[in-house]
Amino acid sequence: MLGFALRRAALAVAVGLAVSAIAFLLLRVSGDLAATLAGEEASAAEIERIRGLYGLDRPVIVQYGEWLLRSLRGDLGRSLFYPESVAKLILDRLPNTATLATLGLAVALLLSIPLGVVAALFRNTWIDRLALALAVLGQAMPSFWFALLLIFFFGITLGWLPVSGTEGLANFVLPALALGWFSTPVLMRLTRAGMVEVLAADYIRTAHAKGLPVRTVLVKHALRNAVAPVVALASVQFGNMLSGSVVIETVFALQGIGYLAWESISRRDFPVVQGILLVVALFYVVLTLVADLLNAWLDPRIRSG
């Protein structure tokens, strides 16, 4: 297990360096940053002054090396719009997005795994078809529309939950439901497919023949083997929630990094956009590493392979 973990960690470091280079180069290939920062009415002399001020007149490899060294020290530069550093802006907004993504993933798993198991146990019955219908409905309904429905029923009509702000955990209930609902269908279908395959395996029939309790067979033998792909996909879904929650954050007025990214793009605040790209991409790398290690722990065949 240690050797597997070290190999995966080395691969994660290599991917992290590649991701940092891509995050740095994306803004460079999108156009002349100096001309964009100077504005449409700027003269050639002003553009050159901006280019020298921000070091954009030096070779790209030199710019990347200096930026990478600063990033490793936690210095992601300063915002062009806010009077704060990029790192402080992201750190201030990150807890809201992390809370929303964590609760959203919890909602998705709490809904998808039981539904997938039940659908597999009652395969080709009305229960299975109902679960699949819910999955189709979940993916067909846009997340912002579902969010608006939640606001209307639970926030305005019933008045049970707040619909904006970040004052307490109750403010995250409706956003987490809206965010988690969209990830539920794919996780549910994967759980169902895994359970259907595992329940037909010989070792499950052997476990039943030994007289083991049904609950033990389902949880210890079937679900543990069927859930490995779900763990890998859940880590990707968590990364999607971290980076793609801008719509939900906007609808519920949550000041997270998704909304900060949208603000920065609209204001051409390139250092903030670059910093968010790097942070979110590194989250993906770390989450993928954690998922690989969890899968290896759940299924010894992965680490032996």
Rank of each mutant, 00 (worst) to 15 (best):
L53Q: 15
A12T: 05
L121G: 00
V13Y: 04
V117E: 05
A38W: 02
A108S: 14
V19G: 05
V107M: 06
A14Y: 00
A131L: 01
A38I: 06
L148Y: 06
A147N: 02
R51F: 07
S143P: 00
T36F: 00
N96V: 15
E66Y: 10
E40N: 10
W126Y: 09
L37P: 02
A135T: 01
R78I: 11
G39S: 09
A135V: 01
A135R: 00
I47A: 08
T99P: 04
L103Y: 05
A42L: 10
A21Y: 09
A87K: 07
W145Y: 05
L26D: 01
A106K: 08
S79C: 13
I61Q: 10
A35L: 10
Q139E: 11
L17M: 11
R70K: 15
V19Y: 01
T97W: 01
S30W: 00
L80V: 15
I127K: 01
W67R: 13
P83E: 10
T99N: 07
E48A: 15
L17N: 00
I113L: 07
L27Y: 02
A42S: 08
D75R: 07
E66D: 15
V107W: 02
G77E: 07
A12G: 04
R70V: 05
R58Y: 06
G16H: 01
L37C: 01
F81I: 15
S79P: 14
F122Q: 10
A147F: 05
G104Q: 04
L2M: 12
L2E: 02
V107P: 00
I90G: 08
E41M: 12
L130C: 06
Q139K: 02
I61G: 07
P83Q: 11
L115Q: 04
R7L: 11
V60Q: 09
S30P: 06
W145C: 06
F4W: 05
V15C: 04
R51S: 12
F81K: 14
L89Y: 01
L53V: 06
L37W: 14
G31V: 08
G77Q: 09
A9T: 13
R8N: 04
L26R: 03
A133M: 11
R129K: 12
L56E: 06
E40Y: 08
L121S: 07
M141R: 02
P95T: 07
N124T: 04
L134C: 04
F4N: 02
R93E: 10
W145I: 13
V29R: 03
L148I: 15
L17R: 00
Y82H: 14
L132D: 01
A119Y: 05
L37S: 04
I50D: 00
G138R: 04
G52T: 13
A34K: 12
A98T: 13
L121D: 03
L6S: 06
A87C: 02
L72E: 08
I90R: 09
L121H: 02
L148G: 01
L94A: 14
L2I: 13
A87L: 13
E46M: 11
L56H: 10
G55I: 12
G31Q: 09
K88A: 15
L115C: 03
L137D: 01
